[in-house]
């Protein structure tokens, strides 16, 4: 028996806004603990991890572990048809994922399961010297400020500030955010803004965002739901000076 019911489909929708812009296909694994997926884009620049715990769901029936391979663009088209006050139900029938949204009207979509073309490596565990929190709206606005001058951004964290900097052909930009965390080392790394914007498409997932950084290390951006009911995290490879 496989049936998941979620009274807030926006968690799924906002996750897949980002996931579908990064990867073409994903394997969603569901077992008695919850739902999770790991995926990496074809160029191995961005890794994404989604985990939704069993207790987040209104109904969670999963008698045996199941793997659902889906085309993210096709699933996103369906999720875009949900309204915020709809109740979402996921079931499986034969070779399809059945997605139902029920509000004023009931809509049912059958999304064909696919064969995966490539395997996703296990999530790397990286030790970071620096970790801070920042409201995701603040991060998004800062990236929009930087974006007007350049297509890459330097993240610089010291004991007081997160500074985002860019040098453009005609203008330079610098944004400073007083992070208020205990930081004992400085960290600096450069990233492509296009990749950061893909991750920020998930902004409605949760407000609490963690940034982990080290010199020339990947950027880890973690969005956490309240009471650890779910997490969406991204790992973005840096640009490195030659």
């Amino acid at each position: 028996m496989f049936k998941l019911i979620l009274s807030d489909p926006s968690i799924f929708k906002t996750s897949f806004e980002a996931i579908s812009s990064i990867v073409d296909e994903v394997q969603i694994e569901v077992d008695s603990d919850g739902l999770r997926l790991n995926a990496i884009d074809r160029s191995h620049i961005t890794y994404v991890h989604l985990e939704l715990k069993e207790r987040l769901f209104d109904v969670f029936q999963c008698d045996e572990p199941i793997k659902l391979n889906v085309d993210t663009e096709e699933l996103m088209k369906v999720l875009k048809r949900s309204k915020s006050d709809d109740v979402m139900e996921l079931t499986v029938d034969g070779g399809s994922l059945i997605v139902t949204f029920e509000g004023a009207i009931k809509k049912t979509f059958k999304v064909k399961l696919i064969d995966l073309e490539y395997e996703t490596p296990e999530s790397p565990s990286i030790e970071y010297p620096v970790k801070i929190t920042i409201p995701i709206k603040t991060l998004k606005e800062s990236i929009q400020d930087i974006e007007i001058v350049a297509d890459r951004v330097e993240f610089n964290i010291d004991q007081d500030f997160l500074k985002l900097k860019a040098v453009g052909e005609f203008s330079d930009a610098e944004v400073e955010y007083l992070h208020g965390e205990k930081v004992t080392e400085d960290a600096r790394a450069i990233f492509a803004i296009e990749n950061i914007k893909e991750m920020l498409k998930a902004e409605k997932f949760a407000d609490t965002t963690y940034i982990s950084l080290g010199d020339d290390m990947p950027l880890t951006l973690t969005l956490e739901l309240l009471n650890e009911e779910g997490e969406l995290s991204f790992l973005l490879a840096p640009r490195i000076e030659e």
Binding site: I40, I45, R152, A237
Partner: peptide, 11 residues
């Protein structure tokens, strides 16, 4: 000059 690296070297 910078280049985009992949995550492979960090796994």
């Amino acid at each position: 000059n910078e280049k985009q690296v992949s995550l492979d070297s960090f796994f």
